[in-house]
Amino acid sequence: MNVSAGSYESNDCLITLEPAAELECIIHSVVKEQFGEQIELVLKQTLAGHNITHVKLVINDKGALDYTIKARLETAIRRMRDLDE
């Protein structure tokens, strides 16, 4: 079962998490050329902060700033954990 958080609005992003054998980040972004690496960094740091290593993460980014990406991921992580319980 996957969980998601966020939206397709401009300045927002939609993050989907799905259990997986390893860590995989798939980044779709309207600003991938300029900020792709920064987005990946924020995602990986946040996942690492929660010790999450076995997940497939898909982000569909419409120009979200770092705080938004982080917040959406935190929500998705909590929703995933709530589902597990």
Binding site: Y67, A71, T75
Partner: peptide, 15 residues
């Protein structure tokens, strides 16, 4: 509700 709360938290932590 949880999305909004997290968003506001991270927004006000940053700015």
């Amino acid at each position: 509700k949880d999305e909004a709360r997290d968003l506001v938290y991270h927004f006000l932590s940053k700015f």
